[in-house]
C-alpha cells in the first residue's frame, strides 16, 4: 500500500508539546499537505506554547501569535493583504476548542459568513488544557474537568461546531483525527483544492494530561473515538452535502472509549450517563447517515 502522507516535514522535532500530544501531531500532519508557502495564525492555545522559544522552536513556517478571540479575522486580514501582493499563500488559523467553540466563535462566524479564503483548523482536545483543564463548550457531557469537578461533571452535550459551520454554507468542512492520518491528509488536500473560500477542519486531538490517559495511548484513544462513532469522520461541502468518510466495522462499544480515560470517571459512577452518551452517539450517527444518503440524491434545488 502506498503511504499517502507526504514525507516532507515542517515541524521540527523537540516541540514543547506534552508526551503524546494530539495537537502537535495534528499540526505535523496538516503541514505535510499544506507545504511551506503558508502562515500560521495561533491564538492563545497549547500551540502558542508548543512551538517553543528560539532556538528550539518547531514550526518552519511564519507564525502570527494573536489574541485569543481573533484567529479567524487576523488570518483573513493577512490573506487579504497577501492577495493584494499577488501571492496565494495559504493562511491557516490554527486554534484550540476554546479559541473556536467559545471566545473565537464570533470571529469564526464572521470569517465564515464572508467566506474568507483561509484554512481554519480547530484542534479539539475538549477543554482549556493550557490553563489547567477547564471545561469548554467542546467538553462532552459527563466529563471531569477542574471547573466541572467532583459531583458536578459537565452537564451539557458538546457544542455541534460542525453544524454551526455547515450553517454558514462554506465550501468545505471536515472532521479528522491523527489516528487516521491518510484520511486526515486527504481532507487537507481537498481543503487546499477548495481554496478561494473558507475551509474548516475539526480535528480531534488527544491530550494525555487532560484526558488522563497514558501518553502511549494517545493514538489508540483517538482511534477508539472514531471506532465507537463518538467522533465520526465526515466532510460537508457547501454546508449541505455530507459524506461519511469512514464507517467503523464492527462498531466499538462506547465503554471502550470512555473506560480508557480518567476524565470520564464520572461515567463509572453513573450508568445513566453511559446510556445517555450511547443514545447521543447513535442519534448523531443516524442523522449523519440520513445526510449522507440525501447528499447522494440528485440535487433538487
Amino acid at each position: 500500500m502506498r503511504w499517502a502522507v507526504p514525507e516532507a516535514e515542517f515541524v521540527d522535532p523537540g516541540t514543547l508539546g506534552c508526551q503524546g500530544c494530539g495537537g502537535a501531531l495534528s499540526m505535523r500532519l496538516v503541514l505535510k499537505e499544506v507545504g511551506d508557502d503558508a502562515i500560521a495564525v495561533l491564538p492563545a492555545c497549547c500551540w502558542s506554547i508548543i512551538d517553543g522559544p528560539w532556538p528550539t522552536h518547531a514550526l518552519r513556517i511564519p507564525v502570527f501569535h494573536t489574541a485569543f478571540e481573533t484567529a479567524a479575522v487576523v488570518a483573513a486580514g493577512i490573506k487579504a493583504a497577501k492577495r493584494r501582493q499577488g501571492r496565494d499563500t495559504t493562511v491557516i488559523a490554527w486554534a484550540g476548542d476554546g479559541g473556536t467553540f467559545d471566545i473565537g466563535l464570533q470571529a469564526l462566524s464572521g470569517a465564515a459568513e464572508r467566506n474568507e479564503d483561509i484554512l481554519y483548523v480547530c484542534y479539539d482536545n475538549e477543554a482549556y488544557m493550557n490553563t489547567g483543564i477547564q471545561r469548554s463548550s467542546a467538553t462532552p457531557r459527563g466529563t471531569w474537568t477542574t471547573t466541572t469537578p467532583d459531583e458536578n461533571p459537565e452537564p451539557r452535550i458538546k457544542k455541534d461546531i460542525m453544524g454551526i459551520i455547515a450553517a454558514h454554507r462554506i465550501p468545505y468542512a471536515a472532521t479528522a483525527t491523527a489516528a487516521y492520518p491518510e484520511d486526515l491528509a486527504r481532507k487537507v488536500r481537498t481543503a487546499m483544492e477548495a481554496r478561494g473560500g473558507m475551509r474548516f477542519l475539526h480535528i480531534l486531538a488527544a491530550c494525555p494530561p487532560g484526558w488522563k490517559v497514558a501518553a502511549d495511548q494517545a493514538i489508540e484513544v483517538m482511534r477508539r473515538a472514531v471506532r465507537s462513532r463518538v467522533f465520526p469522520l465526515y466532510e460537508v461541502r457547501d454546508g449541505r452535502h455530507y459524506t461519511i468518510t469512514y464507517r467503523p466495522e464492527p462498531v466499538l462499544p462506547i465503554e471502550e472509549y470512555l473506560g480508557l480515560q480518567g476524565r470520564f470517571a464520572p461515567f463509572g459512577a453513573d450508568p445513566a450517563l453511559v446510556a445517555a452518551a450511547r443514545r447521543e452517539v447513535d442519534d448523531r450517527w443516524a442523522w449523519l447517515e440520513e445526510q449522507h444518503e440525501r447528499s447522494l440524491q440528485p440535487a433538487t434545488t
Binding site: 482549556y128 490553563t131 489547567g132 477547564q134 471545561r135 463548550s137 477542574t146 471547573t147 469537578p149 458536578n152
Partner: peptide, 27 residues
C-alpha cells in the same frame, strides 16, 4: 480561564455552589 487567575475560577466553581451560590464559566 486565564493564567494566573484560573485557580480563583476553579475554586469558585467548586465551592460557591456548596454554599448556595452560583458560579459560571463564561465563554
Amino acid at each position: 480561564p486565564i493564567t494566573p487567575a484560573s485557580s480563583i475560577l476553579m475554586a469558585m466553581m467548586r465551592q460557591l455552589p456548596r454554599v448556595g451560590g452560583v458560579a459560571i464559566q463564561g465563554e
